[in-house]
Design a protein around this nucleic acid. Structure first.
Length: 486
RNA sequence: GGCCGCGUAGCCAAGUGGCCUAAGGCGACGGAUUGCAAAUCCGUUAUUCGUGGGUUCAAAUCCCACCGCGGCCUCCA
């Protein structure tokens, strides 16, 4: 079997993958912030993590996946990381209040930041389940909440202070001393000598006054007025942004060195760089062996942004009748280290592919699909073993399908990685009216039996206009809703 | 200014030194089928890999320059 190789951001090269404790693989994925509904860009990273997990499971690994829920109310804008700006949870509450007024949201008490966080966390899990992310059905401890791990964060900060990796500044805030960690910059290439402080234009000088070095980052911010606050040796306040992942990953996985850590490319610096500094500083051990980052998603060739009107959440698309399997396939079929271009046409392409596979797999008795081996599965695994080359894997499947194989059970087995054959179970705005459509189709069948083509065509046109596609065969007429996109 | 990554047909997208006169999907076109369509099936669809140099017996694949795109340089997947 071909060895599994992954591109490791830490070394900027492909490396053979070998977990510390085979067949167990301990993987941590930077998860969602729950101030709002997650968008398709967020989900590209989550779908990637799911694909990685499913592939490793397919190749005999026992994956322990942990995805955090960031529910601490961090700050907006930039000063935020160091303490200014407006609390994101507060903004979320304002949005929810507005939504509640208009009857859209059903959060019980928008004034309770925890209720707001739980509301969006549930929305995230619902979306994740629709896209068949396994993490959505895992036990809750696999989705640790930052607000429930403040104790572990404080313990780690104390360790860092004791080890002289952190210090308490004049204003009482606790900062990590980056000069105490010579490897700082290894992940991103942004070593201290190369960092241009403030070049990103997002630093507030007034909030960095207490630091020894402008690149030192916040571990604890005392702030008794903060919306969500906890008691600590440094007073009531809240933890810095980076510390939660270090504390929760070790806590949830029970080890100090993870096999795999994933996230979006924007997390490479500073977030993951800082996690490494904190974790290694606290334990003296490597934090994660393989770092994998997904590139950003574009929409119709442009950056996705609310102002451009090309901003999509998963739930928006599903409500509009998009097949979740098509969305899942579209989000995962571009290699994770390339910018993917999300397009409506691409979504339709993906849908066609899913439907074709579903038709092919329709006759397979899922019960009879035991473990198996076949050329196509070997090609499939070989492609994915090469840094998760999903396009190559999909190509292997389609090529094999084009030869009209007798035994289609490999398709069902490979679906344990793809997760797209299952039909949508979601209610959409276009659901309902099935009985009325059945009746129309019956009228059409009667007209056809009487060779009344004009009547038959009229009904067909009517159904087509309503987004219903009819399929006529010798066995009769079947129908399905077309995936609709405006 | 620094650090990453990317640029392959109408669109999406593999391939990263010779099996490439470049997978696979969508679309388009032709045919079978059909009352006509749809669905389905069969076939066709890049001598060329952002541009210009260079290395090599051999380059989409390596090197250099340039152009374009994306990310980061204390919010972000």
């Amino acid at each position: 079997m071909t060895p599994i190789r992954f591109y490791n951001t830490l070394t900027n090269q492909l490396e053979d993958f070998a977990p510390i404790d085979p067949p167990v693989v301990r993987m941590y994925n930077c998860g969602p912030t729950v101030y709002d509904f997650a968008h398709i860009g967020n989900f590209r990273a989550f779908v990637f993590a799911d694909l990685l997990r499913r592939f490793l499971e397919f190749t005999g690994h026992e994956v322990r996946q942990v995805m955090n829920i960031t529910d601490v109310g961090h700050m907006t804008e930039d000063q935020l990381a160091d303490g200014g700006g407006q609390d994101k949870m507060e903004l979320a509450a304002q949005r929810l209040k507005a939504a509640k007024k208009s009857g859209v949201a059903d959060v019980e008490n928008p004034d309770d930041p925890f209720a707001v966080a739980r509301y969006f966390e549930k929305a995230f899990i619902d979306d994740a389940r629709a896209l068949r992310l396994k993490i959505a059905d895992d036990e809750a401890p696999r989705r640790p909440r930052a607000t429930e791990h403040v104790k572990q964060m404080i313990a780690m900060i104390e360790k860092l202070v004791a080890a002289d990796h952190a210090y308490v500044a004049g204003d009482g805030a606790v900062y990590y001393d980056v000069s105490s960690f010579p490897q700082y910059g290894k992940l991103s290439g942004n070593t201290l000598d190369k960092l241009a402080h403030g070049a990103g234009g997002r630093v507030s000088e007034t909030d960095t006054a207490g630091k020894r070095n402008p690149h030192d980052f916040l571990l604890w911010k005392p702030d008794a007025k903060h919306l969500m606050k906890w008691d600590s040796p440094w007073g009531w306040g809240y933890p810095g942004w980076h510390i939660e992942c270090s504390a929760m990953s070790m806590s949830a996985l029970g080890v100090e060195t993870l096999d795999i850590h994933t996230g979006g490319e924007d997390n490479i610096f500073p977030h993951h760089e800082c996690e490494i500094a904190q974790s290694c500083g606290a334990t003296g051990k490597a934090f994660a062996r393989y770092w994998m980052h997904t590139r950003f998603l574009m929409v119709e060739g442009e950056k996705m942004s609310k102002s451009k009107g090309n901003f999509y959440t998963v739930r928006d698309l599903l409500k509009r009748g998009v097949d979740p399997a098509a969305l899942r396939l579209e989000l995962m079929r571009t290699h994770y280290r390339s910018n993917m271009n999300f397009t409506m046409k691409g979504l339709e392409d993906a849908h066609r592919m899913v439907e074709r596979w579903r038709a092919a797999a329709a006759g397979v008795d899922a019960q009879s699909v035991a473990a198996g081996d076949s050329d196509v599965e070997r090609d499939f695994v070989a492609a994915l073993s090469d840094d998760l080359n999903i396009s190559g894997a999909l190509g292997a499947i389609n090529k094999w399908l084009n030869d009209s194989p007798d035994d289609l059970s490999p398709l069902v087995r490979m679906n344990s990685v793809l997760g797209v054959l299952e039909a949508a179970e979601l209610e959409t705005e276009t659901s309902g009216d099935d009985a009325a459509i059945d009746a129309k189709v019956q009228q059409m069948a009667d007209a056809r039996a009487a060779k009344d083509w004009a009547a038959s065509d009229a009904i067909r046109d009517e159904l087509t206009a309503a987004g219903i596609e009819v399929q006529i065969s010798k066995q009769g007429i079947t129908w399905r809703r077309k995936m609709t996109l405006d």
